Amino acid sequence: MRLGFFIESLNRKGGTEITLVNRINLLAQNYDYKIYILTKEDGTVFNLHQNISIKNIDSLSINELEKYLKNIKVEILTYINNYDFDYFNLLKISTKNILEYHTSKSFFEKIYYNTKSQNNILKKLVMKVFGYKKIRELEKVSNKFDKVVLLTKQDLKNWKLNNKIEISNSLREFPKDISKLENKIILSVGRLSKEKGFDRLIDVMKFVFIKHKDWTLEIYGDGPEKERLEYKINNLNLSTNIKIFSFEENILKKYLNSSIYILPSYVEGQGMVLLEAMSCGVPVVSFDIKCGPRDLIKNNFNGYIVRDNDIKGMSKKVIELIEKEDLRKEMGQKGRELSYLYKKDAVIKKWINLYKELSGGEPIEP
């Protein structure tokens, strides 16, 4: 089968890019799929299987792009997030079309319903009406695709679509070992951008370190908020306990070296970092945001979900895990058990069945 993927770039290792590359490499290597990446930048920072080609289409006209797609005989075209609806609307080619949302509906709502900068009540109302219309427009276009793939059951309920299906991301790798949960290290991983909530994680840890000065928080990631976060850490005199490191290629060893994982995000698509921590047997704590955590965490069973933005509430749960080693290990083990459902082989079969469904083929056994 020949698949095409529209994505803006494969020149940064964000969560969306990593999960896509893992999938297409597996399809190309184990199932002999031919994959064509259609992007607006040259090259890639990833190692791609020989059955995967990448093409910069930025300078191509619609007619030239149509000719290229016909020549390579692509059967299914996938659009990653809402990039690029222009191609979807303009291309006149007989393919099946998939839209993948790697962000939740709540992400778009936060963008379109953002009234925080408006003090005037009338302006706030106008912004809400504008946001409502933008979401409806997004759903109207999305309904034109043959399938829209969403990451979580929670998001499946939120989108008003007739063609939606839930397929979660899979784990990059499944570790043979688990953390011993003995090191006094708390971990958080992600892009250093506002939506990831590292600013409020620092506020959480301020209360934790009052009782447990011998523990440390390690944050791994890069992004535009790094300087502001480091200023806040220094301003609160927490530089001894909180360290920010650049993204680590072998992040698995950092999970295995930690004893607690915290997800402080304001919004998430799925929250793969939670799954990665769980697969390493590390207990997790998250704010109760609209999408992601509740698909993975059963509160008080395999982790903690804390009311969104309850800074002191989260600090209390972290302190509880610090002080109760047996609880850490129990929750960590239960999280590990859940993570088996997200191994590569289990998730890739869902994708293959979707591709076969759209192309009229016979599904494979789950």
Score class of each variant (00 low, 15 high):
190 G>I: 03
88 F>H: 04
231 Y>F: 14
189 V>M: 07
113 Y>W: 11
5 F>Y: 14
138 L>Y: 04
64 E>I: 08
280 C>N: 15
327 L>F: 00
57 I>D: 03
244 I>H: 14
113 Y>H: 15
330 E>W: 03
98 I>L: 10
176 K>T: 13
175 P>V: 07
359 S>H: 10
198 F>G: 08
189 V>I: 15
263 L>G: 08
152 T>A: 01
6 F>Q: 04
191 R>Q: 12
110 K>A: 12
33 Y>V: 08
326 D>V: 02
242 I>F: 00
284 V>R: 10
178 I>G: 02
331 M>Q: 02
114 N>T: 09
282 V>K: 04
272 M>T: 09
14 G>N: 12
72 I>W: 04
311 I>A: 05
38 L>Q: 01
61 S>K: 00
5 F>Q: 04
107 F>C: 11
141 V>I: 15
318 V>F: 02
161 L>H: 02
49 H>Y: 12
76 I>M: 08
294 R>Q: 11
1 M>V: 09
33 Y>G: 05
18 I>P: 06
82 N>M: 11
231 Y>G: 07
111 I>T: 11
81 N>S: 09
134 K>W: 06
70 K>P: 01
154 Q>N: 14
43 G>P: 00
189 V>Q: 10
108 F>K: 06
61 S>A: 06
77 L>P: 01
142 S>G: 02
145 F>P: 03
115 T>N: 06
207 F>H: 01
44 T>W: 12
78 T>F: 04
1 M>S: 14
70 K>W: 02
281 G>Q: 00
16 T>E: 06
39 T>Y: 07
241 N>Y: 10
3 L>I: 15
98 I>E: 03
